[in-house]
Design a protein around this nucleic acid. Structure first.
Lengths: 246, 246
DNA sequence: TTACATTATTTCATTTGTGTTACAATAAAG
DNA sequence: CTTTATTGTAACACAAATGAAATAATGTAA
């Protein structure tokens, strides 16, 4: 995909006009832009997207921007460039110590900003060759599928044995199993599995998946040690064995 | 940490004012917004980011929006909602056939738009388990890669021999190997390797890498003296031999 | 060769990750 | 509303992985 320079920049800036100005400037240089009007939101965005560089305003409605740097660092190592309203040497030192990578004052020359951004991106890439996580396409199950000694029946939201005996999966266990089946032979992280069973406005902790997996294993009879159908991928999550389906 | 509803919406719309209006409306509902002013750029953005839903204007500078649907579908299965300037039944049918999921006309009621968006997101999630972007340091190697006599399989977080025998790498050994593969032919400093496997808030001593390398060499069968696959670069660190991969 | 520096390997206490149960919170059913 | 089923968290036991330290082996320079 040889588009060079398609890096993503997250703008954390409360002033809408400045955001818009920055967006215009940077989009002209072919960057992909994400905007956050405050610190809290920026963290939420980082939870969902890989960004290559962050422009961080110091005066945010929910606190001094510098205070967010540690939280940003928990989520990404992308370079953080501070955009400060007025020059203040103490503050500069303080923010750089806090983990910022560069510091630039308003008003700034657009070309200078671009230059700084490029320099930081270059440095970042030298240290960490890293790109966005790939996302496999997942197909919908519409036919019955054999899973172990069971038949997974999407139309009835339940599993059955050959002789018609009905399983006892709850709906979320059924969905979880479906997700595993759709991705058989691929290790799924707890977070991915969480997504598949989450109810609106509530996301369980990753450990809740362990409990569900335990129950699921028991109900489908995956009782060898270690389990053969739903395998544990230590440090990652779980994977349905390809041998188990058909 | 309930970030529910933190879905990402890609706006494909040439009119800046409408883009801005949509952004305002949707950001108020906590969606993350990406903007593309034309079809070509939208495809580039999709190359880099996972989006949950797409709002597609039909009148774009580089062609009718409907023509982009197949290209969008090559990159994502996220629902596409057409935003049309004027109502035209033929066009509606045509775009829905082309793969759009919903159709809404300008001018539209913001609440209606939100309702349609939510409905489509819900439907999409019923079908596809959605993995949020994760930030772990797992390699982004997409395909299996030969390494020595092994096959490095990112989807299973494990290495395998030609005949399917499974390796015994731990997840961090697997990640370490991935880092070496990504940088094959380049000597990596211990500090760099530390980075790739470090757990949150803990940085091991560089010597810990030696131990991991020893274990890794043993497990991949790199047992010549000196080792040929993972070579020691004295005074620097380690380097994966380019001959070993393919 | 020796003397020194760097890396390899083993050991083992510590840390981390997972399986499981019990229970509380929540949703569903009567 | 009460009862029941489902669900997720907390707690604990256990297993695996990890890395610091000690020791052995190897490379390097003189």
């Amino acid at each position: 995909m040889g588009h060079h320079n398609m890096d993503t920049i997250l703008l954390i800036e409360d002033d809408k006009l400045i955001r818009q100005m920055l967006r215009d400037t940077l989009e002209r240089k072919n960057y992909i832009i994400l905007e956050a009007m405050n610190g809290k939101r920026s963290l939420e965005i980082l939870e969902h997207h890989n960004v290559n560089l962050i422009l961080l305003d110091l005066t945010l409605p929910d606190g001094n921007g510098a205070n967010f740097i540690p939280h940003i660092r928990e989520k990404t190592n992308a370079p953080v460039i501070i955009v400060s309203g007025e020059y203040c040497k103490d503050q500069k030192v303080k923010t750089l110590n806090a983990g910022a990578d560069d510091y630039i004052e308003k008003p700034f020359d657009p070309d200078l900003l671009i230059a700084r951004i490029n320099a930081n991106l270059r440095r970042y890439k030298d240290i960490k060759p890293q790109s966005s996580v790939t996302r496999d396409r997942i197909t919908h199950i519409d036919d019955q599928i054999r899973i172990g000694q069971w038949l997974y029946d999407p139309s009835r939201y339940q599993i059955f044995t050959q002789d018609g005996t009905e399983g006892e999966l709850t709906s979320s266990e059924f969905i979880l199993l479906g997700t595993l089946i759709q991705n058989a032979g691929r290790a799924l992280k707890r977070e991915e599995l969480c997504e598949s069973i989450r109810r609106d406005s509530y996301i369980p902790t990753p450990r809740a998946i362990d409990v569900k997996i335990t129950r699921l294993r028991k109900k489908i009879g995956d009782n060898t040690t270690p389990p053969k159908i739903i395998r544990t991928i230590r440090g990652v999550g779980y994977m349905l064995s390809e041998d188990a389906i058909g």
